[in-house]
Design a protein around this nucleic acid. Sequence first.
DNA 1: GTGCCGATATATCGGGGCGATATAATCCGA
DNA 2: TCGGATTATATCGCCCCGATATATCGGCAC
Lengths: 177, 177
Amino acid sequence: MLEFAVLGLLHETPMHGYELRKRLQEIRAFSCGTIYPTLRRMRRAGLIEEEPDEQGAQQWSRRARRVYRLTGAGRDRFVELVEDCGPRACQDETFDVRLAFFARTPAPVRMRILENRRRRLEQRREGQRAILARADEQCDRYTAQLHRLGLDHSELEVRWLDELIAHERAAQQADSK
Amino acid sequence: MLEFAVLGLLHETPMHGYELRKRLQEIRAFSCGTIYPTLRRMRRAGLIEEEPDEQGAQQWSRRARRVYRLTGAGRDRFVELVEDCGPRACQDETFDVRLAFFARTPAPVRMRILENRRRRLEQRREGQRAILARADEQCDRYTAQLHRLGLDHSELEVRWLDELIAHERAAQQADSK
DNA sequence: GTGCCGATATATCGGGGCGATATAATCCGA
DNA sequence: TCGGATTATATCGCCCCGATATATCGGCAC
């Protein structure tokens, strides 16, 4: 999913590794031990190209920086990934990155991702309710409290999703008129 | 931290890999691609020993199972780890495993872990508040909502921690009388 | 002026953990 | 009696993290 995030950021404008890292941290705190290898992998896969910093000819070329830009294949790959609304798109680790690029995701895909996410969370919530019901008898206080926290987290996110979905539906209806 | 969880479970009673897996899933969903290699590593490190299932001589020895039990070194290691209340003990990935064995954690260590966890969460919360303040102007709706969800999660957990800490303090005072 | 700190910038390494998959044996119901 | 679920162990490639190494530059203090 780091690949998706890089694709999305470079889709806006080319930039070098360090700037990429800073922008990525607004989305999720990827470590640099992840970013640079991924950048290389993507370069080898032909999704991005790199070139020495052109405007670095000016006084502030601190060090040899490389500017990364999307290739045509990279652009295609982003479009392909942004339209995926399968099970992967609503996993915990993926969902937040997907949401960060929702503005460039087609509305029907947005809707399906939100609904799939909701379904998944609902299942988890039911599982946690079942566990909690048993936990109050079987487990020690701490474990029971831990389960309660998990359930509260799930319920919070379901409510949050419902708000988003409602807003999304309203926007769809406004569009279709 | 899987190591810690395994140590904690085997501290109660010896058991074989599959039972270990089931018990672990009540704590956190470790994958089997993690568990068996860890078990081997721990065996090589002398923390656990394995032997063919003794009572498997009965009719239901489905397959060659190995029963794992703690060695003396393993017992020592658990005691050592259970008393750690440094920064590692209050990280996201670690904290829930630590809490699962709180009943066998000394009360002063419990208290420090809870307080360190609270401090860490408070910092995150402040960071998220700052981001959210900027996000409402700069980001699109979706990103801003994502940040709000993150903040809500943090605030939920801080409140939850405060409850636990208050309960812990009350228990301590009751003990010291 | 110089000497150090912090930010900029790129890169590697070891290791933990995940998900998929392989492989078997045994149990149970159709 | 056949097949699917459960019990049971193991391996593979991959993603990602955190620590660490290595430079360069700007700016501040002394």
